[in-house]
Protein backbone atom coordinates (compact mmCIF):
# COMPACT_ATOMS: atom_id res chain seq x y z
CA UNK A 1 0.00 0.00 0.00
CA UNK A 2 2.77 2.46 0.83
CA UNK A 3 4.05 2.15 -2.74
CA UNK A 4 0.66 3.22 -4.08
CA UNK A 5 0.28 6.03 -1.58
CA UNK A 6 3.77 7.48 -1.99
CA UNK A 7 5.18 6.13 1.24
CA UNK A 8 2.25 7.36 3.29
CA UNK A 9 1.06 4.79 5.79
CA UNK A 10 -2.61 5.63 5.48
CA UNK A 11 -3.81 4.26 8.81
CA UNK A 12 -1.06 5.74 10.94
CA UNK A 13 -0.60 9.16 9.44
CA UNK A 14 -4.09 10.41 8.69
CA UNK A 15 -5.73 8.72 11.64
CA UNK A 16 -9.16 8.06 10.15
CA UNK A 17 -9.72 11.65 8.95
CA UNK A 18 -12.26 11.70 6.14
CA UNK A 19 -12.50 14.86 4.06
CA UNK A 20 -14.63 15.76 1.10
CA UNK A 21 -12.38 15.81 -1.97
CA UNK A 22 -13.74 17.17 -5.23
CA UNK A 23 -11.83 16.78 -8.49
CA UNK A 24 -12.90 19.33 -11.08
CA UNK A 25 -12.13 18.27 -14.65
CA UNK A 26 -12.26 21.23 -17.04
CA UNK A 27 -10.11 20.27 -20.02
CA UNK A 28 -10.51 18.13 -23.12
CA UNK A 29 -8.98 14.64 -22.77
CA UNK A 30 -6.24 15.03 -25.38
CA UNK A 31 -4.27 18.10 -26.45
CA UNK A 32 -2.98 18.67 -22.92
CA UNK A 33 -1.99 16.21 -20.21
CA UNK A 34 -4.24 17.64 -17.47
CA UNK A 35 -7.06 15.11 -17.86
CA UNK A 36 -4.82 12.05 -17.91
CA UNK A 37 -2.65 13.09 -14.97
CA UNK A 38 -5.68 14.40 -13.09
CA UNK A 39 -7.26 10.97 -13.29
CA UNK A 40 -4.11 9.49 -11.76
CA UNK A 41 -4.65 11.62 -8.64
CA UNK A 42 -8.27 10.47 -8.42
CA UNK A 43 -7.20 6.82 -8.48
CA UNK A 44 -4.60 7.38 -5.72
CA UNK A 45 -7.12 9.25 -3.56
CA UNK A 46 -9.22 6.07 -3.47
CA UNK A 47 -6.51 4.41 -1.36
CA UNK A 48 -7.06 7.03 1.36
CA UNK A 49 -10.74 6.25 1.98
CA UNK A 50 -11.82 9.84 1.47
CA UNK A 51 -15.23 11.15 0.38
CA UNK A 52 -14.37 11.65 -3.30
CA UNK A 53 -16.45 13.22 -6.05
CA UNK A 54 -15.69 14.23 -9.64
CA UNK A 55 -17.12 17.12 -11.59
CA UNK A 56 -16.87 17.51 -15.36
CA UNK A 57 -17.44 20.92 -16.85
CA UNK A 58 -16.37 23.10 -19.80
CA UNK A 59 -14.42 20.94 -22.29
CA UNK A 60 -13.91 18.46 -19.44
CA UNK A 61 -17.22 16.84 -20.42
CA UNK A 62 -15.45 15.49 -23.52
CA UNK A 63 -13.36 13.26 -21.21
CA UNK A 64 -16.46 11.09 -20.77
CA UNK A 65 -17.57 11.06 -24.41
CA UNK A 66 -18.34 7.62 -25.82
CA UNK A 67 -16.49 6.36 -28.89
CA UNK A 68 -13.09 7.99 -28.47
CA UNK A 69 -10.74 6.83 -31.25
CA UNK A 70 -7.22 8.00 -30.56
CA UNK A 71 -5.15 5.82 -32.86
CA UNK A 72 -4.69 8.53 -35.48
CA UNK A 73 -3.23 10.95 -32.90
CA UNK A 74 -1.07 8.19 -31.37
CA UNK A 75 -2.44 8.83 -27.86
CA UNK A 76 -3.67 6.28 -25.35
CA UNK A 77 -7.47 6.21 -25.08
CA UNK A 78 -7.88 6.35 -21.32
CA UNK A 79 -11.67 6.80 -21.29
CA UNK A 80 -12.23 3.14 -20.18
CA UNK A 81 -10.57 4.11 -16.86
CA UNK A 82 -13.63 6.19 -15.94
CA UNK A 83 -15.70 3.01 -16.07
CA UNK A 84 -13.29 1.42 -13.57
CA UNK A 85 -13.85 4.15 -10.96
CA UNK A 86 -16.82 2.30 -9.51
CA UNK A 87 -14.45 -0.52 -8.56
CA UNK A 88 -12.55 2.03 -6.47
CA UNK A 89 -15.77 3.04 -4.68
CA UNK A 90 -15.78 6.35 -6.53
CA UNK A 91 -19.34 6.76 -7.73
CA UNK A 92 -20.14 10.46 -7.31
CA UNK A 93 -19.76 11.75 -10.84
CA UNK A 94 -21.37 15.07 -11.69
CA UNK A 95 -21.57 16.72 -15.10
CA UNK A 96 -22.55 20.32 -15.62
CA UNK A 97 -25.76 20.63 -17.63
CA UNK A 98 -24.79 23.88 -19.34
CA UNK A 99 -21.46 22.46 -20.55
CA UNK A 100 -23.20 19.41 -22.05
CA UNK A 101 -25.82 21.52 -23.78
CA UNK A 102 -23.32 24.01 -25.19
CA UNK A 103 -21.58 21.06 -26.86
CA UNK A 104 -24.73 19.33 -28.13
CA UNK A 105 -24.26 16.38 -25.77
CA UNK A 106 -26.57 14.50 -23.41
CA UNK A 107 -25.89 12.02 -20.59
CA UNK A 108 -26.52 9.22 -23.14
CA UNK A 109 -23.33 10.23 -24.96
CA UNK A 110 -21.16 9.46 -21.93
CA UNK A 111 -19.25 6.27 -21.02
CA UNK A 112 -20.46 6.21 -17.39
CA UNK A 113 -23.63 6.96 -15.46
CA UNK A 114 -23.48 10.50 -14.14
CA UNK A 115 -25.68 12.97 -12.34
CA UNK A 116 -26.34 16.04 -14.48
CA UNK A 117 -26.48 19.22 -12.39
CA UNK A 118 -26.79 22.90 -13.19
CA UNK A 119 -23.87 25.27 -12.61
CA UNK A 120 -25.72 26.62 -9.59
CA UNK A 121 -26.15 23.14 -8.08
CA UNK A 122 -22.47 22.35 -8.69
CA UNK A 123 -21.47 25.62 -7.05
CA UNK A 124 -23.39 24.58 -3.94
CA UNK A 125 -21.68 21.18 -3.88
CA UNK A 126 -18.30 22.85 -4.31
CA UNK A 127 -18.94 25.11 -1.35
CA UNK A 128 -19.45 22.01 0.83
CA UNK A 129 -16.03 20.51 -0.01
CA UNK A 130 -12.91 20.46 2.16
CA UNK A 131 -10.52 20.09 -0.76
CA UNK A 132 -11.15 21.11 -4.38
CA UNK A 133 -8.55 20.07 -6.94
CA UNK A 134 -8.95 21.48 -10.41
CA UNK A 135 -7.29 19.95 -13.47
Amino acid sequence: MSEVTGGVEVEEEIGGTVKKFMFVNRKAPYGTIYALEGLEVVLISAAFDQDVSLVFLDDGVYQLKKGQHTKAVDMKNFSPTYRALEGYDIDKLYVEKESLEERGLTADDLVVDVEVLTAEEIAKLMAEQDVVLSF
Binding site: E3, V4, T5, G6, G7, V8, V10, E13, I14, T17, K19, F21, E40, V41, I44, S45, A47, F48, Q50, D130, V131, V132, L133, S134
Partner: peptide, 17 residues
Protein backbone atom coordinates in the same frame (compact mmCIF):
# COMPACT_ATOMS: atom_id res chain seq x y z
CA UNK B 1 4.17 9.56 -4.91
CA UNK B 2 0.82 11.26 -5.40
CA UNK B 3 -0.19 10.02 -1.96
CA UNK B 4 1.85 12.92 -0.60
CA UNK B 5 -0.55 15.31 -2.33
CA UNK B 6 -3.67 13.58 -1.01
CA UNK B 7 -2.13 13.47 2.46
CA UNK B 8 -1.41 17.20 2.23
CA UNK B 9 -5.08 17.79 1.41
CA UNK B 10 -6.08 15.80 4.47
CA UNK B 11 -3.58 17.34 6.90
CA UNK B 12 -3.69 20.98 5.81
CA UNK B 13 -6.47 23.41 6.70
CA UNK B 14 -6.39 24.58 3.07
CA UNK B 15 -4.88 23.06 -0.04
CA UNK B 16 -4.27 25.84 -2.56
CA UNK B 17 -3.83 24.97 -6.23
Amino acid sequence: GLGQLVESGIQADRLVV
